[in-house]
Structure formats: C-alpha cells, structure tokens
Design a protein around this nucleic acid. Structure first.
Lengths: 112, 112
DNA sequence: GTATATGCCTTGCGGCGATAGGTATGTCAA
DNA sequence: TTGACATACCTATCGCCGCAAGGCATATAC
C-alpha cells in the first residue's frame, strides 16, 4: 500500500509557476507578484521559495532562460520547455485527483 | 506581506481526521483505513502519520479518548471536542479558500 | 507454527517552504 | 543628497510535516 506521494500536497508553488509560465515568459520577481495578484492575496510565496524553485526547474530541463537588461536592471526570463509542459500536465492532473479525493472525504455521508 | 501559512497545504491528514471523527468516534487503525477507503485509494496516510497526529490533537484538546478492549485487543477511540470542532471549521474554511485561490490561478486568463 | 490481520507505538530521515538575510540599480520625496 | 522604497537577483539556515521503517502484542487462519 504505497502512501500518497507528498509531491501533491506541497508542490503548489511549482504547479503555479509552471501554470503562469505556460502562458508567457516571466521573470522571478514578476512571478512572485503574479501569484499574489492572481490569487487576490490569498497565496504568497516569497522570493526565497520562487528563486530556488526556478533554478531547480531549469536544472531539470523544465524551464529555459533568457537574460535581458532593462533600465539597468538585469532580468532572467523563464519559459516552459516541452519537458516542463509535460510536467505541468502531470502535476495538474494529480492536483485535480487529490483535491477531488479530499473533497470526497470531506463530503462523505456518515457511514461511507 | 505575510506568506501563505503552510498549515493549509500540508495539514491534510489533520483535516481528514477531524472530518471523519466529526461523524463518529473511531480508533487509529480504523482511521487509517477509512481515509484510504473513502478516498477510493487516492489518499493513504500510514500509521506513522496518523498516530502522532492523534496524540498531538489530544494534547491540544481537540480530541478526547476512550479506551476499550475488544477480543483481547485494546482500542483507543477518539472523539472530537468542541475545541476540535472549531479547529475543523477553521481548517475546512481555509482549505476551501486556498484551493479556490489555486483554482483561480490555474484557470486565469492569459493577461490577468 | 508461521504467516497475516489487527491494533498500538516510536525513532530517524528528507524535503519543502519559511525566515532572514545579502547585493545592486533606479526613482522619488524631504 | 540622502534616505526610503521599489525593482531584481541571490543564498544559507531552520523547522516542521509527512515518510520510512521499524518494534510489540494478540487473534485468526492455513
């Protein structure tokens, strides 16, 4: 009886980063704010979470980078690779499965 | 900008345990299987997760216990206290808020 | 007689997110 | 002009939760 891989219950930052980057390339600082804004301040993952995550995803081949200097400040833009897209699809499916299962337990009738 | 308390993204075992015990008293071994069964094998939290959690919840006054011996085997039945019920309500509300926020990000239009 | 299910428990590890810094440039108000 | 704030990158350390992997004891089944 294999336990539920905790990859799903945490891993939310990864899920959201891949989702946002699926639409368009973004840079780290932008992602931090985008998550906060598109979740109406319900979700806040600080830079200490996002930057290491981006580095890991790049190392794993899920993201590719493009460096650009704007107004004297250096930005690192991230894009999702085909590998990253597969990873997102898998994570996303798993997230739906798990939240669905949790919802089932939460709404289960008394003697189920 | 306070970060998202991770209590919500983990803490799923606690949420489910409180939910199941809200209906009727159960013992640890029974809870382990109930979670697995009511989630159709999607969620499996082993005894190493559930037992320490039950002890913590009892210590915090969220659960009360009743010991009973059946067929020579000793069982520890857990019930939700009023404190535990409040705790469940809060956790539950938070879970809905967070999953809702995550869903918003996942389904956000391109330029949101 | 030894495997399996039941029923309780604990120790130790790993990994992720949180905390809390550091560096540097640009802008704006005092 | 300097000091605060936003922008934009980064890292090291910590804490905690769930995971792995056991141990102990009794009942049943083969």
């Amino acid at each position: 009886m294999p336990p539920t891989p905790s990859v799903f219950l945490n891993g939310v930052p990864e899920l959201l980063v891949l989702r946002l980057l699926r639409d368009r390339e973004m840079y780290g600082y932008e992602l931090v704010q985008a998550i906060r804004e598109t979740s109406a301040d319900q979700l806040t993952f600080a830079e200490g979470v996002i930057y290491p995550l981006l580095h890991t995803l790049e190392r794993d081949g899920a993201l590719s980078t493009r460096r650009q200097t704007i107004n004297g400040r250096s930005r690192v833009y991230y894009s999702v690779t085909p590998t990253g897209r597969e990873r997102f699809d898998a994570l996303s499916a798993h997230w739906r499965t798990l939240t669905g299962a949790i919802a089932n337990v939460l709404e289960a009738p008394r003697h189920a």
